[in-house]
């Protein structure tokens, strides 16, 4: 790393007491999978809503020996990911990586890396909205009671209504799931593609919402079941014949780009490529590609 760890700030920016408080709430969250645990969200040199929840979790659990990977929408090089990574490395001095396999902590927004994660890895997700019941019960106090009593009837009516009105379940993202057969949880803006990858995963997933001041968790080997009906199943995003135009992968979550060469008259066209950029690169290297070629 080119930037040195400075001693102006405490290791991991926030003070030890605050880190301990976050860890305490995380323990509670792990003990009650899917249950939202309030925590005292600290002020950070980043605006609330820009990943401060995930950032505080990472700050609270990171150690000097960790290897960090930060992604945003699957990409290691997006502005937000770069900024968060820089803040973390400047205040901790830990080494970073883009390789999913090499990382011990992966902080992410909107994606779970394509590569299968291991038991010794932790996934930290930045969460904008925490409560799936927000759609049907705007009153937080009442929604808390509903969670406590597992009163999810109204949420199921919402699912029923979506089938009746649209002919199928029409929830694109933030798909609600039942964790460990008990709490209903929002899966954050990860695509439906990633929802099933939380189910009985080998790794620990920690969710943090800085603005909403809540953390929650899915421990390893915990059931995560999307809300679905026997005759209207949960479906992931998938189009017949889908393919990444770079690495050729057919089994990844793809995003679309509009490609047009500047200064020419050609009309341009849409291409799809892997949303997980580092995975895509890794696949291409395996196929004999070098960075200079692009």
């Amino acid at each position: 790393m080119t930037e040195q760890h400075t001693n102006i700030y405490n290791f991991g920016f926030i003070d030890e007491d605050s880190k301990r408080e976050v860890r305490r709430q995380l323990l509670k969250a792990v003990a009650l999978p899917g249950h939202q645990v309030p925590f005292a969200s600290r002020d950070l040199p980043i605006g609330r809503g820009w990943g401060t929840g995930g950032l505080q979790i990472t700050m609270a659990i990171i150690a000097a020996s960790d290897t960090l990977k930060v992604i945003d929408q699957g990409d290691d090089e997006s502005v937000n990911a770069v900024n968060l990574r820089r803040l973390l490395t400047r205040t901790t001095g830990v080494s970073t990586t883009v390789d999913t396999q090499a990382a011990t902590i992966i902080q992410t927004r909107h994606r779970i890396p394509e590569e299968q994660m291991r038991e010794d890895q932790i996934l930290v997700l930045q969460v904008p909205m925490v409560d799936p019941l927000r759609w049907v019960e705007p009153n937080l106090e009442r929604a808390t009671v509903m969670h406590g009593e597992a009163d999810y009837g109204r949420m199921w009516v919402y699912m029923y209504e979506s089938v009746i009105k649209a002919g199928d379940i029409r929830i694109a993202t933030q798909y609600p799931v039942i964790v460990a057969g008990r709490y209903m949880m929002d899966t954050t803006p990860i695509p439906r593609w990633d929802v099933l990858r939380l189910h009985n995963a080998d790794h620990l997933s920690l969710f943090g919402a800085g603005r909403e001041k809540r953390v929650y968790a899915v421990p390893p080997y915990t059931t995560v079941e999307p809300l679905e009906f026997e005759d209207f199943r949960f479906k992931t995003e998938y189009a017949e014949g889908q393919r990444c135009h770079r690495c050729g992968a057919t089994n990844t979550f793809l995003t679309g780009h509009f490609v047009k060469s500047p200064g020419t008259d050609e009309p341009g066209h849409w291409v799809t490529s892997c949303s997980d950029a580092s995975y895509c690169d890794k696949q291409m290297v395996a196929q004999g590609w070098t960075e200079a070629q692009e």
């Binding site: 009837g153 199921w156 009516v157 029923y160 089938v163 009906f229 026997e230 005759d231």
Partner: peptide, 15 residues
């Protein structure tokens, strides 16, 4: 949907 609420809470899962 209103009539279905109690059924859905009682784990009826077939539309």
């Amino acid at each position: 949907g209103n009539v279905a609420e109690k059924l859905l809470l009682a784990n009826w899962r077939h539309i």
